[in-house]
Design a protein around this nucleic acid. Sequence first.
DNA 1: TCAATAAATTGATATTTCACAACTTTTTGA
DNA 2: TCAAAAAGTTGTGAAATATCAATTTATTGA
Lengths: 233, 233
Amino acid sequence: MDYPKSQACKTCDNCNEKSHIFSLLSQEELLVLNKDRFEVMFEPGQVIIKQGAPATHFVSLTMGMAKLYLEGFDRKKLILEIVKPWKLFGGPGVFTDMRYHYSISALTETASCFIPAENVKHLIRTNHAFAEAMIVHGSINGSKNFERLLSLTQKQMPGRLADVILYLANEVYQSNSFSLSITRQEIGELSNMTKESATRILKDLENEQIIKIDGKGIEILKLEALKDISLRG
Amino acid sequence: MDYPKSQACKTCDNCNEKSHIFSLLSQEELLVLNKDRFEVMFEPGQVIIKQGAPATHFVSLTMGMAKLYLEGFDRKKLILEIVKPWKLFGGPGVFTDMRYHYSISALTETASCFIPAENVKHLIRTNHAFAEAMIVHGSINGSKNFERLLSLTQKQMPGRLADVILYLANEVYQSNSFSLSITRQEIGELSNMTKESATRILKDLENEQIIKIDGKGIEILKLEALKDISLRG
DNA sequence: TCAATAAATTGATATTTCACAACTTTTTGA
DNA sequence: TCAAAAAGTTGTGAAATATCAATTTATTGA
């Protein structure tokens, strides 16, 4: 199998430019992180973090794209996020029962940096600003989950799908025209509907000329109309 | 109107026995909290914390019972928790955009202690153990929200209602036989269904002899059967 | 390159859930 | 205490969504 050349970070130094939360650390503290961390490459489909497994490390994507999802009942998944480089994961689990509370698996060729949980906890105990940043980080995730709860429980399928398209455009691909790296099945897992419903409602949006679909490609034609559908539920 | 005698705490001292998170504070630190805090009584129905309003204070219930809920679309509510004394609220908002991200309103006569956000933030910056406890606190809430997301999105009504009954029995009333302080409407808002559906499914559970209903009273007759319904979804 | 596999689409049908209306029971406040 | 309001119940029909099956299209690995 052709593995790509490892793009492993040589040191944590430049991470404080890329991963916001590390910019609060001194050179000395970055050295502590650097000591035990290691980087691993993942093929598409491979599991980076497994829900239920021991949460021994924080994980940060350094290359590629992955999906973060909850494993529910009957193998049903709920995707919470499409993950791109420089966000830190370890989630609630590292601070509670030492088990990961979600899974992350690679969508593309992906590199991840694994940092022992203890090293990060040590920083929390010794660096006030870093501890506060972790609280803020957790709070932002918390409020996003509130929005998700409302979208998923109170909106009907067109509203939920509009939310997902807007999320992909604004937060993932950062463009109103993008080529999906996820399947219809995964769009369904983001918006809590079956892949058949996802297909149908995408087509409805295309028929109303609100979006343009070309296989994996999606282009938002009428942003306001899409936002309107998101609001109306 | 007959107001009950205020049961205001005289000092924060005894709070470190009641509110777990304050047990990490020294006498000196408790004095800081004590200085600016104040207590307010609320009648049933009154709003203690309003979603969207400026998040200037942390709030802790000291007496009574309240509901914590998200205000969604078309006035629809999603109740996240039935709140009892000695838990701390301020939620994600105090650490992000300084707006509350949920509402809390009194179900019974309720007393709440308001603590200026700055005083708590000060403690976070000066007391490592307290900061870590806040991270753990936020992480526990985070993982509860994951469970809620799964229950609400992947289970059908009987499973969701079973989850709510088990939640009420285990976490709120701490007994398998209890008298509800909430309405059928609010049971619906906890389990994301209409009050009519809540009524019907409660009656189904009673017909199957899994629970016994007497107006506001609920008794769990077959705990295992109820857990089974919760699992099967 | 091509068969095998996975993904996407489409239609028909079944299930779940809601909305509305009518009615009964309980609670509340003057 | 009693009338008004709120909460709870029940039935019916409609809407939303899932399931299943069949088919087409795209992707992948030998």
